[in-house]
Simulated scan of single mutants.
Amino acid sequence: MQKLTPFLISFLLVFGAVACQNPSKTSESAPNNPNEAAQTPDVKATEAAQQDAQSLLRRRQLNEDIRAREERNKVAGDETNRATGDLASEVRSKLEANIPNSALTVKAAENGTVTVGGTVGNQQQLAKIEPLAKEIKGVKKVEVKATVAQPKQ
């Protein structure tokens, strides 16, 4: 046992030193230095993410997520009265999927009032905001403070 103890201690020291050599990153885009600021995504990555959010498949996924949340609330016995964060999130998802090239913000109040601000590309998109938001259970009133802004070229 006396010969084995120094061997085990040296093994632990070597293992600890090797394990501390190179910190692993959670993703390829993560900075090497944890004190380093995160890098902004390039234009192509941003456009790809926006197109993904507006694709038909993504729209279906968002709608299924909304239905699943509503089912969970129904099972819990509370179909329409939910946390304002959940309500705002569901409305934001619905608008993101159905109104392309928009920059909208969503705030929800406890009484079921949802306020939508930001910009959309045209008048038709602006008209879609209220009906889409009211499709979410728990939304009682929609205040549209969004405006039409021409896309930058």
Results as ranks from 00 to 15, higher is better:
138 G>Q: 01
10 S>R: 13
137 K>Y: 01
57 L>A: 12
113 T>M: 00
93 S>K: 13
127 A>N: 14
10 S>E: 07
133 A>H: 01
48 A>Q: 14
153 Q>D: 08
34 P>W: 06
37 A>C: 04
35 N>L: 11
112 G>K: 00
14 V>S: 06
47 E>K: 05
111 N>L: 06
58 R>G: 13
81 N>L: 07
40 T>K: 09
99 I>H: 03
56 L>A: 10
10 S>T: 14
98 N>Q: 08
70 E>S: 11
96 E>I: 11
5 T>Q: 15
58 R>P: 11
86 D>K: 01
55 S>C: 02
41 P>M: 11
130 E>D: 03
110 E>T: 14
50 Q>I: 09
95 L>V: 05
33 N>S: 09
30 A>S: 08
131 P>K: 04
32 N>Y: 10
103 A>Q: 14
43 V>G: 12
13 L>Y: 01
5 T>H: 13
69 R>I: 13
23 P>N: 05
136 I>R: 00
78 D>V: 11
37 A>T: 08
98 N>C: 05
45 A>C: 07
20 C>E: 02
124 Q>E: 13
24 S>K: 09
14 V>G: 04
21 Q>H: 15
95 L>H: 01
151 P>K: 03
25 K>V: 05
65 D>T: 14
147 T>I: 11
114 V>C: 04
130 E>M: 02
100 P>T: 03
151 P>L: 01
8 L>I: 07
145 K>L: 13
30 A>C: 04
64 E>R: 12
146 A>Q: 02
133 A>N: 02
21 Q>I: 15
38 A>D: 10
47 E>I: 15
93 S>W: 09
112 G>R: 00
96 E>K: 10
24 S>I: 15
28 E>L: 14
107 K>D: 13
124 Q>H: 11
115 T>V: 12
49 A>C: 12
118 G>S: 06
5 T>F: 14
38 A>Q: 06
40 T>C: 07
1 M>D: 14
135 E>W: 00
69 R>H: 14
51 Q>G: 07
